[in-house]
Design a protein around this nucleic acid. Sequence first.
RNA 1: GGCCCGUUCGUCUAUCGGUUAGGACACCAGGUUUUCAACCUGGGAAGAGGGGUUCGACUCCCCUACGGGCUGCCA
Length: 471
Amino acid sequence: MSVPPANRPVVTRFAPSPTGYLHIGGGRTALFNWLFARGQGGKFLLRIEDTDRERSTPEATAAILKGLAWLGLDWDGEVVSQFDRKDRHAEVAHQMLARGTAYKCFSTQEEIAAYKAAEEAAGRYPVFLSPWRDADPTTYPDAPYVIRMKAPRTGETVIEDQVQGQVTIKNETLDDMIVLRSDRTPTYMLAVVVDDHDMAVTHVIRGDDHLNNAARQQMVYDAMGWDIPVWAHIPLIHGPDGKKLSKRHGATGVEEYQAMGYPAAGMRNYLTRLGWAHGDAEIFTTEQALAMFGLDGIGRAPARLDFKKLENTCGHHMAMTDDAALLHELEGFLAARHQLPLEPAQKSRLLRAIPSVKDRSKTFPELIEKARFALVDRPVDIDDAAAKALDAPARGVLRTLTPRLQNADWTKEALEPVLTAVAAENGIGFGKLAGPIRSALAGRSVTPSVYDMMLVIGRDETIARLNDAAS
RNA sequence: GGCCCGUUCGUCUAUCGGUUAGGACACCAGGUUUUCAACCUGGGAAGAGGGGUUCGACUCCCCUACGGGCUGCCA
C-alpha cells in the first residue's frame, strides 16, 4: 500500500455530477475543500463528473458554477470535464488488463442477476464471482465484454480516514467492480481515481456516502502503484428532523438560499460551523475561517440544518458587512429573484439608509422592508397599523412639530432636544410622539429609529411627509 | 438481509480518563427603550440503554436500540 503524499502542496477538488442544482450538502463539501486548500496555501480544483451522458446536462453544470460563485468559492485552472478524459480512463483500464490486475468479463446481465439471486437464496452475501476472472484468453468469445478489477478475495482493506478514523472492510464483500463498460466508457470508480491521480489531488474531502467506495478505489490505486490520497469522508447534512435532507424539508439547493436573501458570508459561516468546530468560535470572517479550518475539527455525526441559527449568523454578517458591499450583494439578490434592477436614485437612497437598517436585518428582504422609508416617494402609502397612530390628537401634535424643524440643525444631537421639548409641551411621552412620526415618514409602525429616518431622508422630505400626514 | 459509519442540552458543538460537563442558536424571566429589533442580566436544558476495563469514565471495549450510508455496465 502506498503512503499518503505528505510533502506535496495541498490539492483538493470538488467533483459534482451535473444532474441538477448545487445541493446544499454539495455546497458544504465544496466549502470544506476550498477552506482546506486555501488555508494551506494549496490549490482547489473543480471537476464535473459527467460520464453519465443520460443524466448530465449543461444547464446543471451552469447552475453548479453559479452556486459556487455565489458562495464565493473560486477554483484554480479550468473546469475539468470527466467525460472529455474518457480515452485516458480507457487507457488505464487496458494497462491494468495488461498487468493482469483486471480482466475481460463476458457475462451477460441476465447471468449476473441469476448468479446473485442464487447466492442470496443460499443466504450468502451476493457478490458476483465472474467465471472469466482466470479464463484463458483463447477461449474468449466474440461478444461484448466489460473490464473488471481483480479484487482480492481474502484479507481486508484498511482505509485511513482523517475524519472516520481507521475503517476496515473485509475483502470478500468487495466484488470485481467494472471499470470499463461494454460501450468502452469508464465507470465512476475508475474515472474518479484516474482523474484524482492525474490532477495530483492530495486530499479527497467528500461525503461519507463514498466511504465504502474508498475501499474499491484503493484497489485501483494499488493496481496502478499510485499514491493513495488522504481521505476525509464528511457526514452528510440532514433535515431538521434528522432524516436525509430532501425537498420536503424546504430548500435543498444553494440558489434557493440566495433567493431567500441570506447573505453569502453568513451562509459560508453557518455552513462552516455545521459539522465543524474550533473551540467556541461561532461568528467569524472568511479570513478567520481560513486560518482556523482543519480536518481534525470535522465531526463524525451528521448535522441537522437549523434555520434559526442560520438567520442569526446571517444577521451578524449583515451588520459586519460594509455598506457598499451590502448594496452590491443586494443587487445580486434582486437579479437572482428576477426582480427589476435598482435605478441609480434608488441605489443612492438605499446606500444612505443601509447604516440604519443593517444592524437589524438578517436577510435581504428584511433589509429592503426596513429601508422602505428611504425608497418610497410621497405621498407615502400608510398601512392600517400606521394609520392608527395618526389620529386627530396625533396630527395636532405633528402640526406643532413641523415649524420647529425648519431651523434646527439636522443632526441627531440637535434634533433630540427639539422632539423631547415638543413631546413635553404636548404633555405626552416621547413614545406618543415617535409613533406618529414613524407612521408619517415610513407609512409603517415598525421602522428604524425616527432620528435615523429623519437624517436619511433629509429636512425637506421630513417636513413634507409630516405635513402630508398632519393635514 | 449483509457490510460500513454514527449517537453530549430541542439544534450546532467543546471536552481528547479526574470539569460544578463549557459556548452558541432557540426558549423563558427581568432590564433598557422610540415601534420592531438589537443590546444587557439571569434561568431551565445533555453524555441513547445495558454490560465491562479502571482508583476513576462522556471519553477505552462489547452488546442492544435508534439514525445514516453502501450493497448498479449511477455518480
